[in-house]
Amino acid sequence: MNRKLLFFVLIVFSHFGLNAQSLTTVVSKDKLLQENKVIEKVDSLKKQPENWGLLLDFMALKIQKKDTSYLKWLNNFDLDLKTFQNKDSTKSALGFAYNLNIERAKITEKGHIKRGKSISLETKGNVSFNKEVNPYNFLNTKLAFNLFRIGGGVTVTTTPNDLVYYANLRRKLATYENSEAILNAPEWREMNEKFKLKNSWILKYDFNAGLESNQDFSKKQSTLGMRLGGTLKSWNKNSLASKLNILDYPFAAFRKLTQYKGTLHSGITLPTLLFGFDYVNPIKDTLRKKSDPNLKPFPRMHFEAGFRTVLTEISSQTLFFNSSFKYFKEINASNAIKNNSFDSFSYFTAAIASSSGVYVSYSNGKLPFDRRKEAVYEIGFKYQLD
């Protein structure tokens, strides 16, 4: 039997708690105690289920009454308080990074595929109280129309909307004394026949308009463009997709060396990729103007990749490794632009972060409006408001 699937099923059941009870006519004190028991057993089965949030949400929608079409707000706000320091340690400064995303989406479901469209406003950037020590002096705001498709994850083969049926199975599982008994129970075998676990994936593309600038707006440019991105999560550690994720190999070895007890494997940490094309209008850029006095609009392509995995666990804290790479390339740039290195920009960031929000990071490269490469170190604390 699949222990991970046991965890998925029980954690969702415990999450719904009394909601399922409302479908029954009588709820006795003994049944309420049984509900508490299953929550305790789920807690004993937890093994750092990082990156499973989306999968659990997908499963929750399957167990709840099915909505074929609905609207919802998808809001997210991150604020990082940090200290910057340049490579030779001669300059340092306090600062912060922000990332606010407001999105309104309409999602429909057909079979095991979800389709959606949304309008989103995203603004993000890095601000240093000493702008000379800013590793990411690039503020970016975009208004976008998005289309996306989501598939895979936990699927229910039969009776997906029968809440009484699932509630009764949950209560029966709660009567067993430990996880081993649950795994050998006939109710668990029946549950395995109802729930199947498949690779999860998401594909998203958009049409957007934006404004890019440095932190004091002395340089700025408008953009019109489109983006295509996506990712895959393989829940089977022996699948081809899991084996092809060579980026996670050294971290998997470190987890094994440090006897990490979680169930994370390389298939869950496959990178996220994004490709884009923009038509850029340089409204104000004094340095570029020296090479292009008319500040003519130009086409630009860009590429981004993000990677996140677990390093290990120390006491009650989980340590993560995060990295990202960004690349911008002007298409058919003039010789004057190329000679001054204004046609391409690349930037790499790597960070180690704890589950409490503390992190340290290293960045190297340059972004639009930067005129030279620079290495910068950061230490800070991350707040997330959902």
Rank of each mutant, 00 (worst) to 15 (best):
N2D: 11
N2I: 01
K4F: 09
K4C: 03
L5T: 10
I11V: 14
T25I: 10
K29V: 09
D30M: 08
K31D: 08
E35G: 11
V42A: 14
K47T: 08
K47C: 08
P49L: 05
N51K: 09
L55F: 01
L56K: 04
M59R: 02
Q64H: 05
K65P: 06
L74E: 05
N75S: 12
L79N: 04
G95T: 04
Y98R: 01
L100N: 05
N101T: 04
K106P: 01
I107H: 00
I107C: 02
G116C: 01
K124T: 00
S128F: 01
E132M: 03
V133H: 00
N134T: 02
L143C: 05
L143R: 00
L147G: 10
F148V: 01
V156F: 00
V156N: 00
L163R: 14
Y165T: 09
Y166N: 01
Y166Q: 02
A167I: 00
A167T: 07
R170M: 07
K172L: 13
L173A: 13
E177T: 10
S179F: 04
L183I: 15
N184Y: 06
W188G: 05
W188A: 07
R189W: 00
E190S: 10
F195C: 00
L197A: 06
N208M: 11
A209R: 13
E212F: 04
E212I: 04
E212P: 00
E212V: 02
D216A: 07
F217Y: 10
K220A: 05
S222E: 09
L224K: 10
M226A: 14
M226Q: 09
G230A: 08
K237M: 08
K243I: 08
L244M: 15
L247W: 06
D248Q: 13
Y249I: 13
F251W: 12
F251C: 13
F251R: 14
F254Q: 09
L257C: 08
T258I: 05
T258A: 12
H265T: 04
H265K: 09
S266H: 08
I268E: 08
T272G: 12
L274G: 07
L274S: 13
L274W: 05
F275Y: 14
D278V: 03
Y279I: 11
V280C: 03
K284V: 04
D285H: 04
D285A: 02
T286H: 11
K289A: 14
K290T: 12
D292N: 14
P297Y: 03
F307G: 10
F320N: 12
S323G: 14
K326S: 11
K326P: 00
E330W: 05
N332D: 14
A336Q: 14
F342W: 08
I352S: 08
S354F: 07
V358E: 07
V358R: 11
N364I: 10
L367Y: 07
F369I: 07
K373C: 07
L385P: 03
